[in-house]
């Protein structure tokens, strides 16, 4: 091969780049967030089944946001009880942010900007 040195260096760099996922994860076992505990077919506040919430919750939150802020429709009734359409008061009222939200988000590399304004009790206090 001619100019072999340069070509091989180039190839090594190239292969190093494209195989990045393999060697960074070498020997690691990836740990995914815990599976759902409740039945995915059970209904959840907001009109979706629990099984759908993982992929669709952001849509519901977005919809709620408009309804509350722009429409002044703050409450939703589910299973006879009234809930507030609120990330901070509603969702985090039942689910713990760090356990419930952050695990999946950081696993999937999702950084929602909700937390720039909304926060869980006690979180980030200086």
């Amino acid at each position: 091969m001619y100019n072999g040195g340069k070509i091989i260096i180039g190839l090594i760099i190239f292969i190093a780049l494209v195989t990045f996922p393999f060697y960074t994860n070498m020997g690691k076992t990836s740990e995914q967030p815990a599976a759902l505990t409740s039945s995915p077919d059970d209904p959840h506040i907001g009109g979706l089944k629990i099984g759908q919430m993982r992929s669709e919750h952001m849509k519901i939150l977005d919809q709620w946001r408009d309804e509350v802020v722009r429409g002044g429709e703050r409450f939703i009734t589910f299973d006879g009880d009234q809930y507030e359409k609120s990330l901070q008061i509603g969702c985090l009222g039942c689910h713990a942010k760090q356990e419930f939200c952050d695990k999946c988000h950081s696993y999937a590399g999702v950084k929602p900007y909700c937390w720039d304004c909304h926060f869980a009790e006690g979180e980030g206090q200086l």
């Binding site: 901070q88 008061i89 304004c117 909304h118 926060f119 869980a120 009790e121 006690g122 206090q125």
Partner: peptide, 8 residues
């Protein structure tokens, strides 16, 4: 912080 109201 009032955890019932968001910040900006």
């Amino acid at each position: 912080r009032n955890s019932e109201y968001p910040t900006r």
